[in-house]
Every structure is written in structure tokens, then in C-alpha cells.
């Protein structure tokens, strides 16, 4: 059963289906009620499920996340929205010191089944504080599951899984794809947390990406094919837990890997991936693992963002440097 929908609609469907299936699922945040969210992801939920199930809060992210933690302690499954990536930072203390650690602190007696949805990353010409790739902060914090869907089917399936997870989940929505229309097959979607997907098979090298960088990696692979190079693409889907098996199987097969991510490269998720691949696949590698990332700078103003963001040209340049001469 496939239907055409945008990513915003796919996420909306996941919220609806979860709210219908489980009365303890509640949605709240800033402007998520009557307005339906600034990206319309929560459109109609207050109307259809009532004020108690989907509501606006006072404007305070620490309050939203902290209250969600308490509600999760008391049997509910809150799904909260941070309006933009950088506006989640006031909640950082709650996320890092409490949401991530409660299960461990209480020896598993109080787990916090909650989801923090964050529209993230750039590519929309947004002004400052609206385009951060903040995944490394969360991925670095033990206790958080960090998911980054790249397509509309996964956006649905992974959110359903996140809501059902006993652990707190940071759910990163690539905002530049909110309004991209795709055929979505809700029934066939893979809702396994921690499983990467091989979205393109390739013999020569493996591109590893997640979230908004997956379509760019796929476009680069397309372009490489016209030049006679066969690149595979792995979509992580889940940053934490990390699927070493799928990633390494692909890299061992090709012997070459390029990691693509929009966030600044220094101390990043891309760095972690490169390190893991190097450790696990060292004897199979024909060249050092390369990273194509944003620069180590604050996210640029709109007119400059295209200089910062990884594009197909940079990916293909990195691929070119994977010591092909030696292979001849």
C-alpha cells in the first residue's frame, strides 16, 4: 500500500498512528497545537485528538523536555518538538544530565520512553540558529538513541519505532526534505532501530551518509556511474546504536570508503564513523577513509551556505583521492 506524501506528512502519519494505537502517547511543544507546528508536522492533531493529547506549552525548551521526562516517569510516552535545532540548546541540561541518564541512574527502574523531535541541518537558506547539525552532541551522550531518517518511508517507520522504544530518542528530521514528495509504503517500512540500509550497491567504493546527506551521496553515485565508477551508498538511519555490521560488510566488499555529513568535521559523527571503519576494516582498505563534511565554522549566513555544504563535486573529489593508481 503506497501513497504519495511529503516527509512532514509521513511524520504526521506516524504521530497519528502512534496516538491512535496508544493512549499514553502525547505530543507537545511550541506552536504544535492549533497552528500545527511551524513546519505543519503536527497539523490537525489537537483538532483530532484533543487538547490533552497535543498541546502548546509556555515557551521554554528546558521546561518542555524536563516536563516530558517527568511524564515519562509516570507512564506516558511524550513526543516533544524543539522548533529548530539550535533552539533545543536551552534543554541541553535536561537532555544530557537527566533524559540520557535516568535509566542508568535508577538501575533500569525508571526508564524514560520519550522522543525529542528536532528539525535539523541546513540547506534551506535559513538565518542563524535555524540550520545547525547538532547530532554529535547527542550521539556523544550515552543513553540517548539518535535517529536520522533520510527518506519519507523511514521518517514514518523510525518515528513509530522511536515512540515504542523504552529508551529516550533524539529524532533528527532533515528539514530541507520536509516538503519533498515521495511514494511511501508504510506497511513495508523497516522499523528496526540500529539497522543501516544499503540504498545503492556498488563495487568500487562505499559512501556512508545519514539524514540530509543521503540524497547527496546518491546523486554523487549517479554521477560517478556516468564516469564508469561504481559507488555504493549506505544510509545509516540510526546514528546510535551504530550498525557496524552493515557498514563494514560494504566497506570490506569495496575496500574504499567516504563518509559524507553536513556537520563540521572536527570531533563529529563522521569522525566516529571513519575511526570505526578504519579499526574494523583496516586490512581490507585500499586507501584511508575520507570524510566530506561541513567546514569547522559556525553555520554560514544564507548567501554563503552553499560554500559550506558537502556537494557531489566534493564527494567525487574525495573519491578520486582514494588511491586508484595503486589498484592498477
Amino acid at each position: 500500500m503506497t501513497a504519495k506524501m511529503t516527509m512532514a506528512q509521513a511524520i504526521n502519519s506516524a504521530l497519528r498512528d502512534a496516538m491512535t494505537a496508544d493512549e499514553s502517547v502525547v505530543v507537545f511543544g511550541e506552536d504544535v497545537g492549533p497552528l500545527g507546528g511551524v513546519f505543519r508536522v503536527t497539523e490537525g492533531l489537537t483538532h483530532d485528538f484533543g487538547e490533552d493529547r497535543c498541546f502548546d506549552t509556555p515557551l521554554a525548551e528546558s521546561g518542555i523536555v524536563g516536563m516530558a521526562a517527568g511524564m515519562a516517569m509516570n507512564g506516558m510516552r511524550p513526543v516533544v518538538e524543539m522548533q529548530f535545532d539550535a533552539f533545543a540548546y536551552p534543554a541541553f541540561e535536561q537532555v544530557v544530565s537527566h533524559v540520557a541518564k535516568f535509566g542508568n541512574r535508577t538501575r533500569g527502574r525508571l526508564r524514560l520512553p520519550m522522543v525529542i523531535r528536532i528539525p535539523y541541518a541546513g540547506g534551506i537558506g535559513g538565518v542563524e540558529h535555524h540550520c545547525d547539525s547538532s547530532e554529535a552532541y547527542y550521539a556523544h551522550t550515552a543513553g540517548l538513541t539518535v535517529l536520522a531518517p533520510a527518506n519519507n518511508t523511514d521518517a514514518y517507520a523510525l518515528l513509530r519505532a522511536a515512540i515504542e522504544s523504552p529508551d529516550p530518542v533524539v529524532y533528527l528530521e532533515p528539514k530541507r526534505h520536509y516538503f519533498s514528495n515521495e511514494a511511501v509504503d508504510l506497511a513495508a517500512a523497516d522499523s528496526t532501530i540500529g539497522r543501516a540500509a544499503v540504498v545503492r550497491n556498488g563495487r568500487d567504493a562505499t559512501l556512508i551518509a545519514y539524514g540530509p546527506s543521503v540524497p547527496i551521496a546518491l546523486a554523487a553515485a549517479e554521477e560517478a556511474a556516468t564516469e564508469g565508477r561504481d559507488l555504493g551508498v549506505v544510509d545509516l538511519r540510526s546514528i546510535v546504536p551504530f550498525d557496524d555490521d552493515t557498514v563494514c560488510e560494504q566497506v570490506k566488499h569495496t575496500g574504499r570508503a567516504v563518509v559524507v555529513a553536513e556537520a563540521p568535521g572536527f570531533a563529529s559523527v563522521a569522525s566516529e564513523i571513519a575511526a570505526r571503519v578504519t579499526e574494523h576494516c583496516f586490512h581490507y582498505l585500499e586507501a584511508p577513509v575520507r570524510r566530506v563534511t561541513g567546514f569547522d565554522i559556525p553555520y554560514p549566513a544564507p548567501k554563503l551556505e552553499h560554500f559550506h555544504l558537502p556537494d557531489t563535486a566534493r564527494i567525487l573529489d574525495a573519491v578520486d583521492e582514494l588511491q586508484w593508481e595503486d589498484a592498477l
Binding site: D31, G33, P34, L35, V38, D56, T57, P58, L59
Partner: peptide, 11 residues
């Protein structure tokens, strides 16, 4: 207002 949220929801 704070975007769509009326004052009564702030305080």
C-alpha cells in the same frame, strides 16, 4: 502572541 501561542499560554 509568541508566533501562534497566545499570552494566556505563557503566563
Amino acid at each position: 502572541y509568541a508566533i501562534s501561542v497566545p499570552l494566556a499560554r505563557q503566563s
